[in-house]
């Protein structure tokens, strides 16, 4: 993806108020795949005893990344909406570390796009969370 495309994709994400509030960044987007990241922020803590980010913030990143993957598919026009999304929390994200998500739209029909996604912190070999879901394609 060219730098221009990434700037366009980032401005698209910035226009989503909730994603903007969570500080989500686009790292790559194209051909049904999206990479996004979110910096650690104390406001996102879900467990005060450990400082671990709330599962809901990770869910929001995976959901946004999944939607970006759907929109980036060459056959896609317009917006999308999540039909359902399941997130499995493999381990707590290490406090202080940025969370990165990679989402792939691995199958599309006329009305539904199927997405898988994974979230990682600095340890790339052990995912923090994985997700699977369905999104709306087209009108």
């Amino acid at each position: 993806m060219t730098k221009d495309n990434r700037a366009i994709a980032q401005s698209f994400i910035d226009a989503i108020p909730h994603s903007h509030a969570l500080g989500m960044k686009i790292d790559f987007v194209g051909d049904g795949e999206a990479h996004m990241s979110m910096d650690y922020d104390e406001r996102f803590i879900g467990d005060p005893a450990t400082g671990v980010i709330h599962g809901g913030a990770v869910f929001a990143l995976l959901d946004t990344c999944g939607g970006a993957a759907v929109i980036s598919h060459p056959d896609h026009n317009g917006a999308t909406a999540t039909i359902d999304l399941r997130v499995d929390y493999m381990r707590p994200a290490s406090p202080g570390q940025r969370i990165r998500a990679v989402a792939t739209c691995y199958n599309r029909t006329r009305s539904v796009a199927f997405v898988r996604a994974v979230a990682m912190d600095d340890r790339e070999d052990k995912p923090v969370a994985t997700a699977a879901g369905a999104f709306v394609t087209g009108g």
């Binding site: 226009a15 989503i16 108020p17 909730h18 994603s19 903007h20 509030a21 969570l22 709330h54 599962g55 809901g56 913030a57 869910f59 929001a60 990143l61 995976l62 959901d63 946004t64 939607g67 917006a79 909406a81 999540t82 999304l85 997130v87």
Partner: peptide
Amino acid sequence: RDTLIGNPALPALHGGAIAAFLEV
């Protein structure tokens, strides 16, 4: 709050905000 919006065109709440709300 306006920061809960995920689709400004509709407008509609963000799926991630809804998920976090349910999980909370």
